[in-house]
């Protein structure tokens, strides 16, 4: 295995494009190193993107937030502006693993590990975040939900890698939230995750709602029906119940060591409801 740590996006693209299918991007490494040790992957080349300045920066301009691909959970959690704008995204990042994992784990790593249970992805999808992707043909931007196509599967081409996450401008009276269920209080992979992003008019009616669920399908899913159930309502109990039913109905989970189909389906509705409650409360407080 060869290790390279280029200092520019172009350098990384050149290495990755030349490395062929056995090249891997290293950001925080908290998934990659486990897979290396377990013999699940045996890359010939590892390209560490942490020495590329752009991947390590958090920027905010004109209310739009940009988070570098390799920013660690700990760094993001300490960023007051990011936290104020996208509390759901930040809390989803801070839920990945332990304090030690937080010191390394990144948004891009969490996304590109392509696990359906990744904590940040439902929050990023609910936030309508976009990935900035660099590759041999230059830079392109795609919605986060288009990056993973299945467990362990990415839509990225040879030589491409995620450089940053770009967020839309936050409308007034809007906020997001993320909740996940794990059997313990820490250290587990999400059995179900729910990201909700809501915006309200000045009369307290929901004008936009995005509900995304993790660990209930081969990829994180954006449940449009769940969002629709809230739009036009005050997110009252009846609306939340309808939203929860839509969330549960959209689940296509599997039975595995972390949960059953029945359990995931039920709890998806519960968590979506609770996350929507938190997002609504935050939106109200943001007035």
């Amino acid at each position: 295995m060869r290790y390279e740590a280029p200092e520019s996006v172009e350098g990384a693209v050149a290495l990755l494009a030349g490395g062929g299918p056995r090249g891997r991007v290293l950001a925080g490494g908290t998934d990659l190193l486990v897979q290396l040790r377990a013999g699940m992957v045996a890359p010939e080349l590892v390209v560490d993107i942490k020495r590329i300045a752009e991947t390590r920066k958090i920027r905010e301009a004109d209310g739009k937030l940009v988070i570098g691909a390799a920013v660690s959970g700990a760094e993001l959690g300490e960023h007051a502006v990011a936290k104020a704008l996208w509390p759901g995204v930040v809390e989803s990042t801070e839920l990945i693993g332990s304090t030690q994992i937080q010191g390394r784990a990144s948004l891009a790593g969490n996304l590109c590990n392509a696990s359906p249970a990744a904590d940040t992805v439902p929050a990023l999808v609910a936030a309508a975040a976009t990935c900035k992707i660099a590759g041999p043909n230059g830079v392109r931007r795609i919605p986060v939900e288009d990056v993973c196509t299945g467990p362990g599967q990415l839509s990225l081409g040879d030589g491409e890698f995620v450089v940053a996450f770009e967020f839309p401008k936050r409308p007034p009276r809007s906020a997001d939230a993320y909740l996940r269920f794990i059997p313990r209080t820490e250290m587990d992979i999400a059995v179900v995750g729910a990201g909700v992003n809501l915006a309200f008019d000045d009369g307290g009616r929901c004008v936009a709602a995005r509900v995304a669920l993790g660990a209930v399908a081969p990829t994180v899913i954006l449940v449009e029906e769940a969002g629709q159930a809230l739009v036009g309502t005050t997110c009252d109990a009846a609306a939340l119940q309808e939203m929860a039913a839509a969330a549960s109905a959209a689940c296509r989970p599997i039975d595995d060591k972390r949960g059953t189909v029945e359990y995931r389906t039920k709890v998806a509705g519960v968590l979506a409801t609770r996350a929507a409650g938190i997002a609504a409360q935050r939106a109200k407080e943001s007035r």
């Binding site: 490494g29 590892v46 332990s98 010191g103 390394r104």
Partner: peptide, 8 residues
């Protein structure tokens, strides 16, 4: 704070 086992 990091795990030394998760850094090269």
């Amino acid at each position: 704070l990091v795990c030394a086992c998760l850094m090269l």
